[in-house]
Design a protein around this nucleic acid. Structure first.
Lengths: 272, 272
DNA sequence: CCGAACAGGGAACTGAGTGCCATGGGGCAT
DNA sequence: ATGCCCCATGGCACTCAGTTCCCTGTTCGG
């Protein structure tokens, strides 16, 4: 009863649920799979949905947007997830968890996701549009990492490269799942792929270290399951790290603040 | 004369030089910088170029294509470069060299590249189009790596991740150069960025061991290192790559040889 | 000299996306 | 209850990208 199903209330991103959107998406996908994306005009969609043409463009800025109706909200969710991250979170693991949010969105509607995947495979215009969507995710990850790596040597470079690698790994696992028709284990595939990246770029970053070595840690970490952003799970990394040995190799005359910074990022902790 | 200046001869990518293309590109860019991309219609362009509207779409499949007139040829060049690679080439280094082909294309016309960069920054439609172009480069690299990694554990995953990382690093350096207005040392910036990736993914991790490449950094590229905002001026930072700080985190209980190996790789030496 | 081939031009059409205004219903104040 | 206002929707007309069809001139080959 505390929940008022008022549709006009829509100020929040997660809230607005006028059936208009839903019926437009449904009508659009029905026609897209029936006769193809490019062979379907917006007029066809609104005719089937029984609404005016002008209303379509009130709910979707373009015809392509109707194919990705949930990404805007997911991007907002990811941005919030990263914004609410504390300085104690290990950066690379954090962006991996952020990527898992996207996977979760796909996994919520397997049938829909697979249908959409087949569409985007075929239609170049949709593929391009998907690229722009993925790019925004990647930029969100990179911006977060840039903040975490600020002041570090090659900080923005590292941020950009890691963000790209995480997105590529995530997409590799995701597409493998989509190709299987949604029958394989999406979580496992993506976790495996992300672990791969974490081994190459993680805090115990050993350049050239072969990812074929043992996984240091169980992959299925936090956020995939996490409805909660605020559980104090910050400390379990700390416990996990306690039995590590830290070797610091420092150049003679290197400023001390730099040494401290490197150690901090390596451990994923913060000095304050 | 073996050279026939016939314009209709155009079967080769490097050959076709009908002035039509050139004048269209010139007219388009003049208007784009004058009054903006979206404020310029195709009719404006063809009017300035003094040709018929239909001819525009004979030379460019879309309005966006006129902004990237050279990428099609560059992609073909890259594809050929990778196709002609032998099994003796180190894969990661090879895709880095392939990426350098793109840089070279940009560097051939600095003024043009910078102008275009400023355009694509502003116009979302062009940014999206550029993403699709970059995506094709990335796919070319990934396909090559997939071939080289075929049969390996997680071969396609590694291929995709490395391709994404190489592209991200290349773009990081490239954009840094573009942001400088084409005044910094593009080669040095991109080399530095790519070296970064090679250190993370190179098989034997031998950064300086590749005899085909010059030393990655020369002292003249100080401007390119402007990102170092804290400017550790006390330390001459061009001292080869084990300057600053390297941190190695190892698990307690790990065999000592592994710790030593990690330190060695962190320092950029070979373990054997 | 004739015709095939082809580069270019032009008119008309489709379809996406936008601006403007009318309508209609539901809440709110008087 | 009445009148007012907000806002969601619908309808119309317009711009512009991209395409289809067809016309025109030139050039080359017979």
């Amino acid at each position: 009863m505390s929940e008022a199903p008022r549709p006009g209330r829509a100020a929040d991103v997660t809230n607005p649920k006028p059936p208009m959107r839903e019926s437009l998406v449904a009508a659009a996908f029905q026609l897209f799979v029936e006769r193809g994306y490019e062979e379907t005009t917006v007029d066809d969609i609104v005719a089937l949905a029984g609404v005016g043409r002008r209303s379509f463009f009130r709910y979707f800025p373009s015809k392509e947007d109707v194919v990705f109706p949930d990404h805007e909200g997911c991007l907002a969710e990811m941005t919030a997830f990263l914004r609410d991250s504390g300085p104690t979170h290990e950066p690379v693991g954090r962006v991996c968890d952020a990527a898992r949010l996207v996977l979760r969105m796909y996994a919520e509607n397997p049938a829909f996701s697979v249908q959409r995947y087949r569409l985007t495979r075929k239609v170049p215009g949709l593929r391009t549009y998907e690229l722009s969507v993925v790019w925004r995710y990647e930029r969100a990850l990179a911006e977060y990492l840039r903040g975490r790596f600020a002041g570090l040597r090659d900080g923005t470079l590292r941020a950009d490269v890691i963000a790209a690698a995480v997105v590529a790994a995530h997409n590799n696992g995701l597409r493998s799942w989509l190709r299987s028709g949604g029958r394989s284990d999406a979580r496992a595939e993506v976790d495996h792929a992300l672990t791969h990246v974490q081994q190459a770029f993680g805090p115990d970053h050993a350049p050239g270290a072969d990812p074929t070595r043992e996984p240091a840690r169980e992959p299925g970490s936090d956020a995939s399951r996490a409805e909660d952003r605020n559980t104090g799970r910050d400390a379990d990394r700390h416990a996990d790290r306690d039995d590590d040995v830290v070797v610091v190799v420092s150049r003679r005359g290197a400023p001390l603040w730099r040494v401290v910074q490197e150690i901090e990022t390596a451990l994923g902790r913060d000095s304050d």
